[in-house]
Simulated assay, not measured.
Amino acid sequence: MSSLDAAVAAARALDQPLAGRRALVTGGSRGLGREIAIAFAAAGADVAVASRKKDACEELAEELASATGRRVTAHAAHVGDWDRLDPLLDEVEQELGPLDVLVNNAGMAPLYSSLEEVSEALFDKVFAVNVRGPFRLMAAAGKRMVARGGGAILNISSMGSQRPTAGDLPYTAAKSALNTLTAGFAQEYGPSVRVNTILAGPFATDISKAWDPEAVARMAQDWPAKRVGEPHEIVGAALYLCGPHATYTTGALLAVDGGRLAAP
């Protein structure tokens, strides 16, 4: 195949960049995870949707399979439960086949009145969901991917990991740790498995309902985009990092934050 033919084939692949791939999306029944699961199925992937609430996963799986014609499975899993994660990977492989893409999207950012009021239980729970679970999934799924010849892992972190505040410190510390895991796993499982992270900014998901809209609007005036993001605006970056056009991208932290990190 000539270089021109290869370029044309690559451009055509943009219509279905994940055709024939099998992807697991944690926290996939709502928010950014839901948008990523929808985009992946529309891009040709078979998708396993996992979250704590299986009924929500089943509802999305049924609707998404009907809309796209892809195989979409539902799985109940709390990513903070270490012993649940290897069986989760086994379930996905039994129902869909060998995993090509893992998206660590599940996370939690609980509110608290002050740093001194943060309990050990809350702190441990935040790290279990945001760090410990993704670590185990990357370790186990990455090893399987290497044995089969390759794959892609995508972590959903936060721009807060670069701009921590007292109001979200356990969460942003955990996401900073996830950024570090991205670099380490990219080294460990490269070159066949790529590991990247999206630093997500403020998005209008169900979590944003707890925000003070006037305060957010005031803050947003300092950002280049001057607004919060819509959930579907995450999918371009996710498709790129997990697709065939990012084969030289690994260990990267890509901000999708409306320019929040570029602001003073």
Rank of each mutant, 00 (worst) to 15 (best):
D257R: 08
A23T: 02
P202D: 13
T250C: 11
K226H: 13
I198M: 13
D90M: 06
G160W: 03
L154N: 10
F203S: 00
R84Y: 00
A204Q: 12
A67V: 02
F127S: 07
V118L: 13
F185M: 02
V129N: 01
A77K: 01
I153D: 10
P213K: 12
A48P: 08
L253M: 15
M159K: 03
P213S: 13
G33P: 05
T249R: 04
L261I: 15
D222C: 03
E116Y: 07
V129A: 04
R12K: 09
V131D: 10
A252P: 07
V92Y: 06
F203A: 11
T68N: 04
F127Q: 09
G20C: 09
A13E: 01
V228E: 14
G133N: 03
G160T: 09
T180Y: 13
S176M: 01
G33C: 12
G259Q: 06
P264C: 08
A217W: 08
E120R: 08
G236A: 15
A76F: 06
A106G: 07
P164A: 02
A61D: 05
V256M: 02
A200R: 01
S51Q: 08
T247Y: 05
V101E: 00
E58A: 14
R70D: 07
Q94R: 14
A238N: 13
G69F: 04
N105I: 10
K54T: 11
Q187A: 15
N196I: 06
W223G: 06
A237K: 00
R21H: 10
L137D: 09
V25K: 10
V216F: 11
R52G: 09
L88P: 05
E59F: 01
S158N: 00
E91D: 15
A23L: 06
A217Q: 11
P224D: 03
Q94T: 12
A11V: 12
R52Q: 10
G149C: 03
D83N: 11
L239M: 03
E233K: 10
L102C: 07
S119D: 05
D83S: 13
W223L: 09
D15P: 00
S176Y: 07
D81Y: 00
T205W: 08
D206Q: 15
E214K: 14
A210K: 11
Y171C: 00
T180D: 08
G151L: 04
I198G: 11
